[in-house]
Every structure is written in structure tokens, then in C-alpha cells.
Simulated scan of single mutants.
Amino acid sequence: MPRYVALLRAVNVGGTGKLPMAELKAMCVDAGFADVETYIASGNVVFSSKLGAPKVKAALEQRLQAYAGKPVGVAVRSADEIAAVLKANPFPKAPPNLTVAIFLDEPPPKDALKDVKGQQDEEMRLGKREIYVAYGSGMGRSKLKIPAAANGTARNLNTIAKLAELAAGDEKA
């Protein structure tokens, strides 16, 4: 059965309206997903499903909307796709905790980096359905705005590496 990684967008992990990872896991089980594992409290879940990626996405988004009362976007990647995102990192010498992949539903437009604002020492490259960003001075100080990434969700390379490992089945959390 195929393994998937689902990355939730704009998950509030603290305060009012938060989504506990136990609730996310329960939603996945309710959707019929198997071997469900969450990873850190930022909306990352790994599971197996007989469904194809579009149906996985739809099933999870439907449950999240019912829970949250508003749409919650989800980026879905297969185990092979998440491993490929990690392997395709165009910034191998940059610190992995300061380098992210912004996951998108569709391939970014070729001119996706044209309208960027606030760029300082960040480097950016386009991926298949991702935009990679290496934050030279760190994300906390960055003023970078990438309009093409507005509907995406970012994970740093350390998180992506762990999710790829979990999706490959190398470890149970």
C-alpha cells in the first residue's frame, strides 16, 4: 500500500483553534488511512492508503474543514516524492535548519521568483512542485515575500529528511 506524507497549511499549534496532533491522527484513521504517524506539532502526518494522492488530499481536507470550520489546505506527497524533494535540494552546503522547501499543489510558474519582495541574503530556486529557499541569516530576520508561494506550506530540510525516513518505513515514531 502506498505511503504518503501530508503537510497541513497554516496549522495553529497553540492557542485558540489549535489542532492537536492526536486529532489529526484520528482524522486520518477515520479516513481509512493505515500506519498513521504524526511528526512534530506542525501539521505533518505520514500514513499508508490505497487511495491515490488526489483522493487522499480531498478526504483529509474535508475532515479538516469539518473540524476547523474553514478550509485547511493540505500538500500531499508520496514517499518517493518526499525523498526526491530532499535529494533535489539545490543548496546542499546551506544549513538544513535554515533551508526550506515550500510545497505547492502545482508546479511553480517559470517566473515565480520575479515578483519577490524583501530579498536580502536569501537564495531561491524552483523545484518540481516546490520553491526552495536558503535563508542566509535565518527565517526569523527575513522580510522575504514570495507571492507564488502564498498558498504553499514550508518545511525545513531537517523535517523533510525525517518525514522521508518515516514515509520509507525506516522507523516508527
Rank of each mutant, 00 (worst) to 15 (best):
R3A: 15
Y4Q: 13
Y4V: 08
A6H: 12
L8Y: 00
L8H: 04
R9C: 01
V11M: 12
N12F: 07
G14W: 05
T16A: 15
K18Q: 15
K18S: 06
L19P: 00
L19I: 14
M21Q: 10
A22E: 13
E23C: 12
L24C: 12
M27I: 09
M27L: 15
V29A: 14
F33L: 01
A34G: 06
D35C: 10
D35W: 12
E37I: 11
E37T: 12
T38R: 04
I40A: 09
I40L: 08
S42I: 10
S42H: 03
G43N: 05
G43D: 08
G43Q: 00
V45N: 04
F47V: 01
S48C: 10
S48R: 14
K50E: 14
K50T: 15
L51A: 15
A53M: 09
P54I: 09
P54S: 10
K55A: 15
V56T: 02
V56Q: 08
A59R: 01
E61N: 05
Q62S: 10
Q62H: 09
Q62D: 15
R63I: 02
R63G: 05
R63A: 13
Q65K: 15
A66N: 11
A66D: 09
A66G: 05
A66I: 02
Y67D: 06
A68S: 12
G69M: 04
G69T: 09
G73H: 11
G73L: 13
V74G: 00
V74I: 05
V76N: 01
V76G: 01
R77S: 08
R77E: 07
I82P: 04
I82H: 03
V85Y: 08
V85D: 04
V85E: 06
L86T: 01
L86E: 14
K87M: 06
A88D: 15
A88F: 14
N89E: 03
N89D: 13
K93C: 07
P95Q: 15
P95Y: 12
P95G: 11
P96R: 02
P96H: 04
N97L: 10
N97Y: 14
T99H: 01
A101L: 02
I102K: 03
D105N: 04
D105L: 08
P107F: 10
P108M: 07
A112Q: 00
D115R: 07
V116I: 14
K117C: 08
Q119F: 02
Q119L: 07
Q120L: 13
D121L: 09
E122V: 01
E122I: 07
E123W: 03
M124D: 07
R125M: 12
G127H: 09
G127V: 13
R129V: 08
R129F: 02
I131P: 06
Y132V: 03
A134E: 13
G138R: 12
M139E: 10
M139T: 12
G140H: 09
G140A: 05
R141G: 14
R141F: 05
S142V: 04
L144M: 02
L144Y: 03
L144T: 00
K145P: 08
K145G: 11
I146Y: 00
P147A: 03
A148D: 00
A150I: 11
A150N: 12
A150D: 10
